[in-house]
Write a protein that binds this DNA or RNA. Structure first.
Lengths: 341, 341
DNA sequence: GACTGGCACTCCGTAGCGACGAGTGCCAGC
DNA sequence: GCTGGCACTCGTCGCTACGGAGTGCCAGTC
């Protein structure tokens, strides 16, 4: 593993040039564009070593070199520093997120912004409800045996669900139920509701027990568990930019398919942290269909808490420092928006 | 315009073969696959006429013929009868839509189903609110000067919006406002609300006038006007199926871009009717970026009323009879689902 | 008059070939 | 340890040849 400084410098130059030009880079072009202070021959020797170690490869004998997934990994871990955002980008972020009218709007603006700035496919998970608290529960009769259960959270999210009741209930009962539910749950974080909710059923009036039980199970199953499933997506048209190379082989289809599966997308955000971006390069991806891409993801939320994930999906040949910076910046602004809300 | 029956039959054969094989179809192959009862030479003469009339064209001299937009149009209008759905498709539709838990779920299932059955890009507009009625309005205080306004409609849709009030209001005032709003608007169709709502401000207590006025304007602007904007999309990966032909030219990008613009998608559903499908072939599309595609759209709703549009976007070379049948069938089932709801 | 068989023609797609150039690996020399 | 030089590889491009599919047209037949 004897990679001295110059060899690392060569690797960095290769990655940067390849990302910029999308073409295999040769030793001569390298010394011309980067002040390496050595001759092409020397660079060739270094490249041979880098290739032995698996950081770069030749698409064909006697073509230039291209970074491997491993090479990108080394580049990301050790050779790149975070690229500060341009003032224009900063302004774009501020302008885009200001003026959002509700949660949906905020999330949509954020994905579009991210897609536009990175010129890649952007994915934003809706804020998870587990960390938010119940602000209000509303029961609206739809028919004698059906109720609309509406939950409003302190993050501004509204969830609703029609509940089929075991038997008819009259308006006073509903008023009662509403009062009890709100008294017990208002202000409580969703993660903390399950134990409280059990008690509700036990303490309910005998004749209301069945109804309450139904309500409670719906509350748990649907509202609390289904919450993290929503995803916003933007910039799929940027996939067409991935390069006619991969495009003609029909490699696009599986990627588009994966992007349509919310379940798959949610996997991208397993264990994301706020503040730092995680980079999954090519084969490192757990999602098989995305093995030909790289995913840069991070968590966002008010302060340091994470209420959701966001990120971008793009070619392994991407501008990692720039993308990482943008993803983190948008996540930070989004977090701030939520904190204000 | 002397197109006798056989020439029409030839056109139909060309369309069907081209749709099936995606390759220009020649006179010889045509007589082999279709019992036209004449020789290739005769078919060639017919094809020459069809080409003169602009229904088919040759990609290159001495290649087979390909239908033009005009040819597809004639085919759709006069040469195809509705293809009955296969029992498998019927079953798929029933199975998919049953078991939906709420409006979001219904719409999502419908769009995915449509994409799957037609193997194309499916688009479903959320039910418009103009024809539905207010079931309940709820006001939830978020802070002293902020209210969450929630509207529940009889189609099961819930719309919410945070309202910034001109000044602080206390809980009793809110209760009052809620009562007045519901007394006036519950059961009223959204299209009929504007006149009623004006009266609300005038009749409000002097000190509540400003608050009521704010609420009312938000109600009108946001809830009533923004309602038709939502769109569900599925099957974009099917675009990759459009054929490497158009794909390599980079024609995919504008299409993907158009599909990301909700405003554009909504244009597809201008003036759709329930029951009959509308077909826009190639250049007939108003949306310029979709001029290389065909759009089959229809309206849906409970009974014969239209509360939203749905359709598919695919290559001009598509199975029109099958697609039309599927779009109509899914629309009908979706309408039924809404009627039950 | 309508259809058919035959024929020459066009032109796409593919394969083979050679020149060119980019890039490499290696080696001798500094 | 670096460099210049050199032979070699191999992909790309342009050219040519050619087979095949398909056409348009014409003369002949029913």
């Amino acid at each position: 593993m004897g990679l001295d400084d110059r060899k690392l410098e060569v690797l960095r130059a290769i990655v940067e040039d390849y990302v910029a030009t999308q073409e295999p880079v040769g030793s001569k072009a390298l010394v011309e564009r980067h002040a390496l202070g050595v001759s092409p021959a020397t660079v060739r020797n270094d490249m041979a070593v880098l290739e032995d170690e698996g950081y770069i490869r030749q698409p064909h004998t006697s073509a230039g070199r291209v970074p491997t997934d491993r090479g990108y990994r080394l580049f990301v871990d050790r050779l790149s520093r975070v690229k500060p955002l341009s003032p224009a980008e900063r302004r774009a972020i501020e302008r885009f997120l200001v003026g959002a009218v509700d949660l949906d709007d905020v999330v949509h603006r954020a994905v579009r912004l991210l897609a536009q700035l990175t010129r890649q496919v952007a994915v934003v998970q809706y804020p998870s409800l587990t960390r938010s608290a119940v602000r209000h529960l509303e029961l609206v009769p739809v028919s004698t045996t059906r109720l609309l259960l509406v939950m409003i959270t302190d993050t501004g999210r509204v969830e609703q669900r029609v509940v089929e009741l075991p038997g008819p209930v009259d308006p006073e009962e509903i008023t009662d139920l509403r009062r009890v539910l709100n008294a017990t749950l208002a202000g409580v974080k969703l993660v903390d509701t399950p134990p409280l909710v059990q008690g509700l059923v036990e303490r309910a009036e005998p004749q209301a027990k069945a109804t309450m039980s139904t309500l409670v199970s719906v509350l748990l199953e649907t509202l609390v568990e289904r919450h993290e499933e929503r995803i916003a997506l933007a910039g799929t048209s940027n996939l067409a930019r991935m390069g006619p190379l991969d495009l003609s082989t029909g490699a696009l289809r599986p990627i588009l398919e994966a992007l349509e599966e919310e379940v798959i997308l949610l996997k991208l955000f397993d264990e994301v942290k706020a503040g730092s971006a995680r980079v999954r390069i090519g084969d490192e991806n757990e999602v098989v269909d995305l093995r030909s891409t790289s995913v840069v993801s991070t968590g966002y939320g008010p302060g340091a808490t994470v209420v959701g994930g966001m990120g971008v999906v793009g070619p392994t040949r991407m501008d990692y420092p720039g993308t990482i910076a943008t993803v983190r910046a948008v996540a930070r602004y989004l977090g701030e928006m939520l904190a204000q809300h």
